[in-house]
């Protein structure tokens, strides 16, 4: 592990960007005139790929773009250049990889966009559960009201299974019930995914137009669906873990 100091990326004062090497105007990640890597700008991932903040993305095109930019920015191509260029290539290609990794996955893409829209997504991950377990606090995760009953029952069954396992028994009837529950949740998960997809379309329709209120509505719906979806994903994982062990 090494430490380094961050150097401020030199930005053109006028806002008009020119290549540091050949002074050609409007150089983005690399100069279209001389091919050299440019200092990275702090831009969001959509801007990096020149995409509007929309949720339906042509992933094949994104991939092609990713490969093309990799061929321009990857540190392997700067093995024989100045330290400064090597540093820029490292920054640019990590930004490229981070952006591609986030945007190619529709869920990560949605979560990222929501964060850009100022939403702090509720931490529904397993680590929240673990934190709660270790610190003795109540898990901050809020159970979606319509799932309360099922979740309660499921947790009882999981506990029962653990107890019987401790006694060295495998309660087959219980396992079957849990599997049935799991299938049920998986269906719900799929329904929520479909629901989320509809919101993507809705979002994209209003993304460019001046309808802030409408946008906020859709945004909040997406947050809700994502939270429920994550919650169910964690439940399925818990059941899988219990059944698998």
């Amino acid at each position: 592990m090494a430490t380094e100091s961050t150097t401020a990326s030199p930005l053109a004062e006028t806002g008009e960007r020119v290549c540091w090497s050949c002074s050609a105007p409007q150089a983005a990640q690399f100069c279209t005139s001389c091919g050299k890597v440019q200092p990275s700008q702090s831009v969001d991932y959509f801007t990096f790929f020149g995409l509007p903040r929309k949720l339906n993305i042509d992933v094949t095109r994104l991939q092609r773009e990713f490969y093309e930019l990799s061929r321009k920015l990857h540190p392997d191509l700067y093995g024989q250049t100045s330290k400064q260029e090597q540093e820029w290539s490292l920054e640019q290609s990590s930004l490229l990889n981070d952006a591609y990794r986030t945007l190619k996955d529709p869920i990560k893409r949605t979560e990222y966009l929501l964060r850009l829209e100022g939403v702090e997504l509720e931490e529904q991950s397993k680590s929240a559960t673990e934190t709660a377990r270790v610190s003795g606090e109540i898990k901050k995760q809020v159970v979606p009201p319509d799932l309360l009953e099922e979740v309660f029952e499921l947790n009882m069954q999981l506990e029962e299974l653990r107890m019987s396992r401790k006694m060295g028994e495998d309660d087959l009837a219980l396992i079957r019930e849990l599997q049935a529950h799991k299938t049920e949740f998986e269906k719900k998960f799929e329904v929520l995914t479909q629901e989320l997809k509809q919101y993507w379309d809705q979002w994209d329709r209003v993304a460019d137009v001046d309808q802030e209120e409408k946008r906020h509505q859709i945004r909040d719906k997406m947050v809700d669906v994502l939270n429920r979806r994550n919650y169910i994903r964690n439940l399925v994982r818990d059941v899988n873990e219990a059944l698998g062990s």
Partner: peptide, 18 residues
């Protein structure tokens, strides 16, 4: 907090990654 690992770069991420 609580001795938990918060993963910030997942395995199998293309490098360089940040």
């Amino acid at each position: 907090a609580g001795g938990v690992t918060d993963k910030i770069i997942l395995r199998n991420s293309t490098v360089p990654a940040s």
